[in-house]
Amino acid sequence: MSHSIRTALLVVLLATTCAPAAAQEKFPSRPLEVIVPTPPGGGTDIAIRLLAELAEPALGQKIVIVNKTGGGGLIGMAQVVQAKPDGHTLGGLWNAPLTMTPHMQPAPYKPTDYVAISLADSAPTVFCVKKEFPANDGKEFIEHLKKNPGKFTYGNDGVGGTIHLSAERIFSKLGVKTRPVPFGGAGETLKNYLGGHVDIYGGSITPILPYIKDGSNKCLMVTSSEKLVSMPQAASLSELGVPDTGTALWHGIVGPKGIPAERVAILEKAFREAARSDKFRQYMEPRGIKVEAASGADFRKLIDSEYAAMGDLMKSIGLTK
């Protein structure tokens, strides 16, 4: 089995590499490890695995994905931060462990403990309703919600989850009051929404896409500042007058602080190329996910601004620890 051969190879190589690596050593000199702090098979896991596979040729070494679950992503991320900063151990993550969860729970790391390498993709969340709902575009949607404060329920991915926070960020700016019902993920939200147990679907695009296509549901709002080509009916945040309140669900690669700059540059280049590749694009775009392939510097800016915005938001809705 190639998985175990990979592991065995990694084990042998790690065990024999006791001497400190010489500065002139070629990087990377052995297989890399990317820690994904979710169980295998979820959205983040799939995206990072695909990205890693596509980055292998540029790096000349295999990339092994290690799933380390727990603590809402904090445990896996902690392991990244504590790893040896030689560039061979990295983290593949989404927003929450970096910008959201640390506000709610004591995290064993600070934003300055890691270096941002590259942002791979990002996807806004959408808000959809059944076709009978009395609104046909974003503005009518918000109007209707404002007229009925506290009446409508929307499904999200758990209190303090990405969907919940991105929704509240917008709703609080617009003065809308709805009742969030926490579910375990897009799949459960979808199921409960389709069964009529909640009024509004709030979540990622991919699961609800087939149900929009067949006309039984309509998407009225998207949490990005520009409109989505695939969903013309959904109002963008600019159209609603609140362009800077968007939060997308993104995936990116980070590493422990202290990796030498030349190595970071090599990694950044490899992962950006991987994200720009056709195969990655072909996977992401039909799902409504935007390929970013951003530089480490841009990624860092996004993380820092989102971290600050989330801190403020959570204080205002009373979620901070």
């Binding site: 603590g71 445990i75 902690a78 064993p108 926490p182 979620l319």
Partner: peptide
Amino acid sequence: PLTGFPRFTFGRIEISE
């Protein structure tokens, strides 16, 4: 699972699940 509040974990993240 619904609010993220730690219950009976004695502050250890390992037990948070």
